[in-house]
Write a protein that binds this DNA or RNA. Structure first.
Length: 468
DNA sequence: CCAGACGTTGTT
DNA sequence: GTCTGG
DNA sequence: CCAGACGTTGTT
DNA sequence: GTCTGG
């Protein structure tokens, strides 16, 4: 499902919005430069996106941390969890209380220093511009000398398509494509690829909205855009990891987006949707809590269909072509029932459609930017070619309301990045696979076991606040 | 013991 | 159809 | 996720 | 890295 989304905002702007939601950002990537997140209304797998996470260190997973004895202790805990999951939650909470300032989450004595130093170095490589303390904690604001420490949280640039830390060589594209999403029911199972990350490398993936293609026939697909009705950033539950290929010094950070069943509102469009969490909510705090190092039913229960209100409407087919990028991709396209959607949009925007149309009789015109820098002008009519219906989404398109984060800002179209990141690096790879043997088309044996998400919903609270 | 998978969506 | 690129 | 390419020999 | 299959 979630295989394409919109994120046109700069990290600095995202940081500001996080601040308003009382979500601390102790570090963030630079807006521009090598390794900076891509700003695009057509964000695709393989791009560098914006991820929010607790600063637990790159090795901050449940598996590869701590001394041998600590690990054994954890295994014991894990067995307990398997035996009696429900009862375990409470005990977990108690344990956490005692470890808030203890920094017991694994980074033991030795080798600790190295890890932290490296972590700081790589922050620079990833385009982060602020210095870090590297200790994964920070003084709470206004606490005076008695200030307690709280976990550090950071925005970070990472690549979409998770590559596990144990991976030896650069995986092919098909493999990466399979890890742009992680199923909630896969996380519910005990073993498997997600096992280490779900314990210690949970994150939030920052988007403005995502695209889904409605199948209207065997051949015809109509892209739809989905965003929050309240205009806030859409925060998706995710996992991240950091890999260092053999014979390489470089660390590669990647992420995946967790999917679950669709809610009622999106059912017409697709049967799956990303897990959406509300900004500033207790759920996000729980999901990112670095002190939770085991997978519990509490964490699993966060992965449920979204209960809040979304806005869904058909958009231009131009978005289908990767490399196209335009703010028009997130505005509704006219349907038979509502031919004037787009014209209304441009008029309400104050008559300047992106260097295109004037108000009045002139047809609205937009500019579609290719990633290589070329530009192409199109009238709205042209853009709607082939789009007939799509009425079910019922776009409301009231632009006047507040500042809608998901709405395009035509006066501030972020410059499309011209350079594709050349990854390959020092690795033979890709060479001459011309004659490849037939790929394995193994049928998926429908794993599941799907522990149906229970219905419990949590309320939004004040949040992270300064310390706890 | 070693070797190999591990992940998703969609479509039929 | 299958594979690659973004 | 979707779109688009997918092939060879020989000659200059 | 960890688990499964042979």
């Amino acid at each position: 499902m979630c295989g394409r989304y919109a994120l046109a905002m700069r990290p600095s702007q995202i940081r500001q919005l996080f601040y308003q939601e009382n979500m601390p950002v102790d570090d963030a990537p630079a807006d521009e430069g090598e390794g900076a997140p891509r700003q695009s209304y057509n964000f695709a797998p393989g791009y560098n996106g914006v991820v929010y996470r607790a600063d637990v260190g790159d090795r901050g997973g449940a598996s590869s941390r701590g001394s041998r004895s600590q690990r054994q202790a954890r295994q014991q805990q894990q067995q307990e969890v398997e035996q009696g999951e429900e009862a375990q939650v409470d005990e977990r909470g108690k344990r956490d209380e005692g470890t808030i300032t203890d920094k017991d989450d694994g980074e033991a004595v030795e080798g600790d220093q190295d890890t932290r130093e490296e972590s700081v170095e790589h922050d620079d490589e990833a385009g982060n511009d602020e210095k870090t303390t590297g200790d994964g904690a920070v003084r709470a604001e206004g606490g005076g000398s008695k200030a307690r420490t709280r976990a550090r949280y950071r925005l970070q640039s990472m690549k979409w398509g998770l590559i596990p830390f144990w991976t030896k060589r650069n995986p092919d594209y098909a493999a990466v494509l399979k890890t742009i999403n992680a199923r909630d029911d896969s996380l519910a199972q005990n073993g498997g690829m997600w096992n280490t990350m779900k314990k210690g490398k949970r994150c939030i993936v920052v988007v403005e909205g995502f695209y889904e293609w409605l199948k209207k026939g065997p051949k015809e697909k109509v892209p739809h855009y989905v965003k929050r009705k309240d205009g806030k950033l859409m925060l998706l539950a995710g996992l991240w990891d950091c890999v260092e290929y053999e014979n390489s010094e470089d660390r590669l950070y990647t992420y995946t987006i967790i999917t679950t069943s669709s809610n009622e509102q999106l059912r017409f469009l697709h049967d799956r949707m990303p897990v959406i969490l509300d900004p500033g909510s207790e759920e996000i705090k729980t999901w990112l809590d670095p002190e939770r190092n085991e997978w519990t039913s509490e964490l699993q229960s966060l992965l449920k269909p979204y209960k809040g209100e979304l806005e869904v409407y058909p958009v231009s087919k131009e978005v289908g072509k990767v490399g196209n990028n335009s703010p028009t991709f997130v505005i509704p396209v006219a349907s038979k029932e509502n031919k004037s959607n787009i014209a209304n949009f441009f008029q309400s925007k104050g008559g300047g459609g992106g260097g295109g149309g004037r108000t009045g009789k002139v047809k609205p015109e937009v500019t579609v930017k290719k990633e290589d820098g070329e530009e192409e002008k199109k009238t709205v009519e042209e853009m709607q070619k082939g789009v007939d219906d799509g009425g079910m989404g019922t776009p409301s398109s009231k632009q006047g309301v507040k500042r809608e984060v998901g709405s395009p800002d035509l006066e501030d179209v972020p410059p499309a990045k011209k350079k594709m990141v050349k990854e390959e690096s020092a690795s033979p790879v890709k060479t001459r696979p011309k004659i490849s043997a037939t790929k394995n088309q193994t049928r998926s044996p429908a794993k599941s076991k799907a522990k149906a998400a229970d219905h419990g919903s949590q309320k939004i609270t004040k949040f992270f606040g300064n310390s706890a």
